[in-house]
């Protein structure tokens, strides 16, 4: 009988504990109901892509020397460099240049290795078309600049974590024009100078 009772007691204790922990879990979810939603309401709000963001590639026709380095470092040899050797000037003349963004994986190798910096990466990421061939950009399309998120009147720009001021964790709560974390090197220098003078 005693054994049975102690068993019942243990059972009851178990049940109470279970209820307690389930309640604790529900406390966590309940607490989240009063926190601000963290979702970004695309397309009404947009994150500002980072400075190093690797979006659609920008190409400057005049800078290119048709060296084809970009083709060689590309994982799939994607850029098409069409040139003709001009025997008069002993130079390659670029006729056309194109990158098919339906195939490009935006790895940035071409940008990194281009000797003349003819290539650069923009912040444009929403490349969507009804026909994938429209994504094959020629040198004219490659030369266009995208609209900035911060200059679009229809969009509320929101910053990513790395560009928020120190201590702020959520882009919604901070104006996107506020200064981001970290000091400029010049300021640090001035500070350390003051330190040594004082």
């Amino acid at each position: 009988m005693l054994k049975f009772l102690s068993k019942v007691g243990a059972y009851a204790k178990d049940a109470v504990q279970a209820a307690k922990y389930i309640g604790q879990g529900m406390g966590v979810t309940f607490d989240h109901m009063r926190r601000r939603p963290i979702t970004v309401q695309y397309p009404y709000e947009k994150l500002i892509p980072s400075e190093r963001f690797r979006g659609r590639i920008h190409f400057e026709f005049d800078k290119c020397i048709s060296c084809e380095v970009c083709v060689r470092v590309c994982p799939i040899n994607l850029p098409v460099v069409d040139y003709k050797f001009n025997s008069e000037y002993k130079k390659k003349e670029l006729k056309s240049y194109s990158i098919d963004f339906g195939v490009c994986i935006f790895c940035g190798n071409c940008v990194e290795y281009c000797p003349t910096n003819a290539l650069s990466m923009t912040e444009e990421y929403d490349l969507s078309t009804y026909d994938r061939h429209e994504l094959n950009f020629d040198s004219v399309a490659l030369g266009r600049l995208p609209t900035k998120v911060t200059e679009d009147p229809l969009v509320t720009p929101i910053r990513e974590l790395a560009y928020l001021p120190k201590g702020a964790m959520e882009g919604h709560q901070v104006d996107h024009r506020q200064r981001r974390a970290g000091q400029r090197p010049e300021e640090l220098m001035a500070e350390s100078k003051e330190g040594t003078e004082a």
Partner: peptide
């Protein structure tokens, strides 16, 4: 994304180091 330029497909490591130093404030 701030350090490498991409959220998932970073392409950040290089033979002999990394592609770029950390950005300001990172």
């Amino acid at each position: 994304e701030a350090a490498t330029g991409m959220r998932m497909m970073h392409n950040y490591f290089r033979i002999g180091g990394v592609a770029a130093d950390l950005p300001y404030g990172w």
